[in-house]
Simulated scan of single mutants.
Amino acid sequence: MIHPHHSALDVVIAIDIGGTTVKGAAIDAAGTVISRQTASTFDAGRDAYASVVAVARRLVDEAAAHGFAAAGIGIASPGLVDPESGTVMFAANLGWDAFPLRRLLEAELQIAVSVGHDARTAAVAERAAQGAGASGTDTGSSYDTAYDNALIVPIGTGVSSAVVAGGVLIAGATGAAGELGHMQVIPNGALCSCGQRGCIEAYASGTTILDRYREHGGTIASSTQAIASTLDTDPIAARVWADAVNALSIGLAGLAAVLDPAVIVIGGGVSAAGDTLIGPLREAVAARLGWRSTPRIEQSALGAQGGLIGAAIIGWTDQVLDAGFARQTYLSLSSEPQGAADA
């Protein structure tokens, strides 16, 4: 397997698997992006695993061309993830069932692999960006302790969440803690990809917001981002957006009532809507928590990059990273051009 002694020319391969795209980057220990790649998850009929392998191979090759060796691979995966074995027990959006991702990828590439749940991996990055060390521990007075009791909610192709309680990331008995997207909030509601009706994800993911807009006859907007920007002029967009906020607010108010978080962080691609999402969501959650104070609700500092940055952190399994690693990686990702998406 991988050599135990890191050199300055080591990188980790970070991969964030989404239901729509597989994003990857080769990142050094200082948080500098050496190379990046993106592929469609189900490109040209290829399955999700083949897309992960294709992105990983290209990144390893590109890193080598720049004189870097891959010291590890960190992966953020949706679904039920067992980080001990690196197995994805179930991922509806990927068609995976008891899928031994780490074992297969290590055999394929001969590089040590760490697999984490996408939202919990993003939570590691969010906390690091707030001043916690890569291990999640406080590294100084700058750390925002609200993140010790937090809900981190990435919204992309799916809706997920990570629960941080007393400074600990909660995985649950089967690794399924935080499956916010499959909380049923609308009785006999819209059909979800998991087979249930009325799930939050059936109303509030980037994919379902656009799907519902089209189902209701919407024609003006061609993306979820466009829907968010036409709420004042497009009544169908406004209705579908309100449904998404409503579904999310039911789930978040319920979790807030049970877990008492100090902060709820909205991340993932849909968080790019900013105040168009956060504003009405704050109001809706507050209205449902009339009996108590409302946790602060804010936009992620890392946006859609949280999963990828977290994957880099867990990929550096035995490297003590600087507290600024997450922020530096975010800056580097924000300034680097996207890699070619064809494979």
Rank of each mutant, 00 (worst) to 15 (best):
Ala247Arg: 02
Asp342Asn: 10
Glu283Ile: 12
Arg103Cys: 05
Ser205Thr: 05
Ile314Gln: 11
Gly324Lys: 00
Gly206Tyr: 08
Ser205Lys: 06
Ile297Met: 04
Thr32Tyr: 06
Met183Ser: 06
Asn93Pro: 05
His182Tyr: 09
Thr224Phe: 14
Ala247Lys: 09
Tyr203Asn: 11
Ser293Gly: 12
Thr20Met: 04
Leu109Ala: 13
Gly136Phe: 13
Leu281Met: 09
Arg103Leu: 11
Thr38His: 12
Gly274Asp: 07
Ala341Val: 00
Thr20Phe: 05
Ala30Gly: 13
Ala71Ile: 04
Ala129Trp: 14
Ser249Met: 13
Ala56Glu: 05
Ala171Ser: 11
Gly279Glu: 07
Leu105Trp: 08
Met89Val: 09
Ile111Trp: 06
Ile73Glu: 04
Ala14Lys: 02
Ser160Asp: 00
Val164Met: 12
Ala340Asp: 14
Arg127Lys: 03
Glu179Asp: 13
Thr20Gln: 07
Leu289Val: 02
Leu331Arg: 13
Ala343Asn: 07
Asn93Thr: 05
Ile17His: 10
Ile200His: 04
Gly217Tyr: 15
Tyr330Ile: 00
Ala312Ile: 04
Glu126Ile: 03
Asp118Lys: 02
Arg102Pro: 04
Glu179Phe: 06
Asp144Val: 01
Ser114Gln: 15
Val320Lys: 13
Ile73Tyr: 04
Ala272Asp: 06
Ala129Asp: 00
Ala54Asp: 12
Glu108Arg: 08
Ser142Cys: 06
Arg214Tyr: 10
Asp97Gln: 15
Gln225Leu: 15
Ala323Arg: 11
Asp243Leu: 11
Pro295Thr: 10
Arg103Trp: 03
Ala44Asp: 03
Asp148Ala: 14
Gly206Met: 10
Arg288Gly: 10
Trp291Thr: 12
Leu281Val: 07
Ala76Phe: 05
Ala202Leu: 10
Ala63Tyr: 01
Thr317Ala: 15
Ile266Asp: 09
His6Phe: 07
Ser40Lys: 14
Asp97Arg: 15
Leu277His: 10
Leu255Ser: 12
Val258Cys: 14
Leu169Gly: 00
Gly195Tyr: 10
Leu59Ser: 01
Leu180Ile: 12
Ala125Leu: 08
Asp16Ser: 02
